[in-house]
């Protein structure tokens, strides 16, 4: 049962991710991205990380992607036209893909083979995540929040009209 669900949602995630790039209309791409977020949430749930799954849906599928969609609608972006002639893409694309594939293969091989245990992850509850964030990972957590604050201040400064 777990394996079947995993295969279904992993397939959806990959297909939707490819669809994000393939689609020529920005709204279709954004909706595919929502599909990726949703199926990732199901994968988290299968692993037993229910809090992360809920946060994934609330934050990414619910808030971030709504804002994306909102901006696309507000700009009234139309269908992108395809330009096949791009020298840089041809020259850089293939080597970059090869390097990426090699790196991925290296990282997968260097991981110890532990096998997949569905629902075996125990640190996924709200208590466990909160404890980890405020003890072990306190510094990265706070640094991230300051980074986001800087981004917000920057956005306001850029968007501000002359007073």
């Amino acid at each position: 049962m777990d394996v079947i669900l995993f295969l279904i949602f992993a397939t959806i995630a990959v297909v939707a991710a490819v669809n994000v790039v393939v689609q020529s209309h920005p709204i279709s791409s954004a909706i595919s991205l929502i599909g990726v977020m949703g199926s990732l949430a199901v994968l988290y749930l299968l692993l037993g990380a229910e809090f992360i799954a809920a946060a994934q849906v609330i934050v990414y599928a619910g808030a971030v992607m709504v804002l994306f969609l909102f901006v696309i609608m507000l700009l009234n972006a139309g269908t992108e036209t395809r330009q096949s002639k791009s020298e840089t893409a041809h020259l850089l694309g293939v080597p970059a893909l090869l390097v990426f594939a090699l790196l991925l293969a290296y990282f997968i091989r260097s991981q110890p083979d532990s096998g997949v245990h569905f629902g075996g992850f125990t640190g996924g509850s709200a208590q466990a995540v909160g404890r980890a964030l405020f003890t072990t990972y306190l510094l990265p957590f706070e640094v991230t929040s300051v980074l986001i604050l800087i981004a917000i201040v920057g956005a306001i400064v850029l968007a501000r009209k002359e007073i």
């Binding site: 709204i27 909706i31 929502i34 229910e50 809090f51 809920a54 946060a55 849906v57 609330i58 599928a61 619910g62 808030a63 709504v66 969609l69 909102f70 609608m73 709200a126």
Partner: peptide, 22 residues
């Protein structure tokens, strides 16, 4: 995570309105 489930369902429900309008 019942409370979060309700929040998640309601935040996904926004798409119904947004996509209908667009």
């Amino acid at each position: 995570i019942g409370v979060l489930f309700v929040l998640a369902a309601s935040s996904v429900g926004v798409y119904g309105v947004a996509l209908a309008g667009w």
